[in-house]
Design a protein around this nucleic acid. Sequence first.
DNA 1: GTTAGCACTCTGTTAACACGAGTGCTAAAT
DNA 2: ATTTAGCACTCGTGTTAACAGAGTGCTAAC
Lengths: 347, 347
Amino acid sequence: MLTDRQLLILQVIIDDFIRSAQPVGSRSLSKKNEIQFSSATVRNEMSDLEEMGFIEKTHTSSGRVPSEKGYRFYVDHLLSPQALQQQDISQIHSIFAERIFEMENIVQRSAKILSELTNYTSIVLGPNQQENRVKQIQVVPLSEGTAIAIIVTDTGHVESRRFSFPKDLKAEDIEQMVRLLNDRLAGTPLMELHDRLYKEMAILLKRHIANYDLMLQAFAEIMNVPVHDKLFFGGKMNMMNQPEFSDIEKLRLLMDMIEREDNLYNLIRPAEGIGIQVKIGKENENAAMENCSLITATFPIASGQKGSLAILGPTRMEYSRVISLLNMLSGDLSKALSNLYGKSQER
Amino acid sequence: MLTDRQLLILQVIIDDFIRSAQPVGSRSLSKKNEIQFSSATVRNEMSDLEEMGFIEKTHTSSGRVPSEKGYRFYVDHLLSPQALQQQDISQIHSIFAERIFEMENIVQRSAKILSELTNYTSIVLGPNQQENRVKQIQVVPLSEGTAIAIIVTDTGHVESRRFSFPKDLKAEDIEQMVRLLNDRLAGTPLMELHDRLYKEMAILLKRHIANYDLMLQAFAEIMNVPVHDKLFFGGKMNMMNQPEFSDIEKLRLLMDMIEREDNLYNLIRPAEGIGIQVKIGKENENAAMENCSLITATFPIASGQKGSLAILGPTRMEYSRVISLLNMLSGDLSKALSNLYGKSQER
DNA sequence: GTTAGCACTCTGTTAACACGAGTGCTAAAT
DNA sequence: ATTTAGCACTCGTGTTAACAGAGTGCTAAC
């Protein structure tokens, strides 16, 4: 395997490159305090490291640059968990300083702060709304033939949908419908709503309500709550500041990919458990992200759901710092959201 | 003033530059079909046009480029209203193809289509929610001490806010409060809500409700609906495709400005009446937009409110086409939203 | 009033060249 | 057996000069 000296040199190369974005050469390395050997020695070691695939040359006589394998090794074995600056900590706490009652708010602020602290792009995925349960359904008539349907979930999320109905539906029909819906559907997860409406409710409605088919039709599309959750972004433009994207073509590729959120969704939400996950370069299996790394933190929320935080940066990313930040923030978010959701799930 | 020939030449210069983004020279002009004179003649005319400030040179021996004054003249006097392509028309109609019941939806789609048709950035501002009137106020308790307050407006807009209240408030207190609020505040414009709550309601509440101060406090912040409306964007990144923003520094400046929405808000919402307004380059009074033009279409909505559509592009913009598109879409939007809002404002 | 012709200017591209940073290898030093 | 000094070689960068191409302005001829 690698000797201690090789480990040291690899670490210093990567640290230096992360800072400077410049290929690092043997001479500049040998001048560093950590490195006590001559440049020639360093050269020999670098040659070995290159042979093993941890570092690369950009051209025959250039300094070395970490390869993806190098970053992977660095992340897996060389990362010294770095203590956060006091400043960072207080910034993160500022997210929770005000009493906040909306999930969206807290999540949006987290994304913002995270991107400001790192100068990368942050992506936050709140808990899955699909698993929320119906607390109450209401209908507010607006004018003849139109009304607003409102679904409140146990987590305090409110969905509203405008709909129209045939004029021959009477106000009392609708009221009765709403009563029935509330009786039967309270506690149903949003994702099952549409199905249950058709399967269970249809029979029931037929018995109780005139014009049940018209009614059903009117409500059917309302109950179709969006398939997946909103992603919240911070610092979408931060990648412009990274030298690897000074080429506008690469930038465009990346931005286009970010805009097509559905792609991202799958990248952010990792099937596997809790904790930090690092995807480096091509590990992301997306051409636009081959110069990027994505660090994802998945955290539990009391109700059994999960939330995710992610940072998208260049492969040349401050892994240590970002991981520390994500660790801390995901812990705090876990607590805060659990609190928010837990409370409201008492019945 | 300008001779016919000068008008012609100015027009051709600008049209050509808008297409090519390249300075246009006398020789290439004289080769065009519209131009029957020799390059020398054209040179003389161009020299005059330059003296009058309509065109500029980028360096001593370059072709000419339209100045802001040139664009202004072009927009005011030379624009031939261009017939829209059938394709454009059907794209726009596709926005309204589905039956749509939410303002947000329709507005978001408009922004998207508009940016796709033009390759510029589109900004849409829906009708002002602040003037909407309260239709119904509801409170749904979530758990001990927290509840969701929901305000439905006559336009079908739903605002919800989570809030907490002291435990010694009883359920019936809250119910009574909601009844009172509905009795007294129905029909109040959102913008007056907060004030009226404090001024009129306070007295009333004092008489009817125990713990009225706690109650008031809980409701006060809920009634603070956001100051101004959401802007909807389409094609935020489209400016990357414009050669004037191949310099990443300029791009960043512009993007930063777009991200700070509050600035934009004032630019989009023109105090003056209805119709199309064109702001060219420095007329926008914003350093980041000195290479941009902003075309705004303000249109009426039945209820007496106004909506705005805007296109942000480089000064070298396809004015004619954009104006035609905006004219058409703003007409359609005006109808569609009036319809949506008009209906629901019958009492 | 129009145009042909010409000198002049600026840009962009290419080739040549020197310089600096870096490497690989060999031989000497430890 | 390691480590290091030295040297030849390679590549990228920056500078300079030369040159073609596109355009202008001016003058003189039409």
